[in-house]
């Protein structure tokens, strides 16, 4: 079987890995910039590091996902080390600077490379994820790697696929006196880790929660995702750090993600049942209430690509031969 890495390149993008229109070859001659991630303390001992609310592109070095730094007595915990080795190194240095301690543990919330590919900057034994995430990375890691090198070129220098320990289970862990509650969910992908910092009520949603940035669906199961959102909604919390988009202190992001996914689901159903083709579905007007959501058209068209052929196979009637 020759399913080459190339074969899965465009489709497996995380929050935006589909190739951009600029020819990739040009990038090879450009000098990649230097990552300069900034940490904003959003709760006592918790820093959010913002990604760009954009698709993965050479211009942003792939740094589109949010990362989180948590201080503990034993050292720092990093959630989602970013898209590349050098980003991982920058996050590591940042974590050491703001906490004054070394990084003792890294969590990768799910397989997508904008979240997972910085793992090589850390001791592999300290990098942890759900078993499903490790399994998915074993399957897709090389394909992601080809795709990211194609788009990000020099930014990716030295980046290899580092497998996290696939040993995270749901429940409470205490690191350096800090109590974290881990949730083993799925729906955005087949393994989505969410983390609650008990002391501050900060919920780290991973890509189960997007905020003012359209949700990406390349490995999504929408029903499963909606179930996971219900679950997170039931967890008492004061703040949500989404996988993409700004901090949510007004309890809006979970509802907004649910609203978008429900709309996408209904819109795709209606499009199939009214005989529209994929191009027409991709041109569906975006409701006014989503006007401020970044990259909405882009993610809408990606979702059409992810779901349309399968939905047609389910919804269009079989005709006897």
């Amino acid at each position: 079987m020759r399913v080459s890495r190339r074969a899965i390149i465009a489709g497996l993008g995380a929050a935006g890995l589909a190739p951009v229109l600029a020819p990739a070859l040009v990038h090879a001659e450009q000098f990649a910039g230097t990552y300069d991630p900034k940490a904003e303390e959003v709760a006592d001992g918790i820093w959010m590091v913002r990604g760009a609310d954009e698709p993965i592109a050479f211009s942003n070095g792939g740094a589109i996902a949010n990362s989180v730094i948590i201080a503990t007595d034993d050292g720092a915990v990093v959630v989602d080390p970013g898209p590349s080795l050098s980003y991982g190194r920058a996050i590591r240095a940042l974590a050491e600077r703001v906490t004054g301690k070394p990084v003792v543990r890294v969590y990768v919330t799910h397989l997508h490379p904008d979240h997972s590919f910085g793992a090589g900057a850390f001791d592999a034994r300290s990098v942890h994820a759900l078993p499903a995430t490790r399994h998915d990375l074993e399957r897709d890691g090389e394909g992601f790697s080809d795709a990211l090198f194609r788009v990000l070129a020099d930014w990716m220098k030295g980046t290899t696929v580092v497998m996290p320990q696939g040993d995270v289970t749901a429940g409470e862990v205490v690191i350096g006196g800090r109590k974290l509650r881990l949730f083993a969910l799925d729906g955005h992908s087949s393994g989505d880790l969410a983390i609650l910092d008990e002391a501050t009520g900060t919920l780290i949603g991973g890509d189960l929660v997007f905020h003012d940035r359209a949700p990406a669906t390349p490995h999504a199961n929408l029903d499963g995702w909606l179930t996971a959102l219900d679950r997170l909604d039931g967890v008492p919390h004061d703040l949500v750090i989404p996988g993409h988009g700004p901090l949510d202190s007004g309890n809006a992001a979970i509802a907004q993600t649910r609203d978008w996914l429900t709309w996408i689901q209904g819109m795709l159903n209606d499009a199939v049942l009214s005989g529209k083709d994929m191009s027409e579905a991709g041109a569906t007007p975006i409701p006014e209430r989503f006007a401020d959501i970044k990259v909405a058209r882009y993610e809408l068209q990606r979702s059409v690509s992810h779901f349309y052929p399968g939905l047609e196979a389910k919804l269009l009637p079989m005709v006897g031969n």
Partner: peptide, 16 residues
């Protein structure tokens, strides 16, 4: 000729 913004899956690129 209507094409998507990106060829998300190059096995299945819609063209209208």
């Amino acid at each position: 000729v209507i094409l998507p913004v990106v060829a998300e899956d190059q096995h299945v690129v819609p063209v209208t």
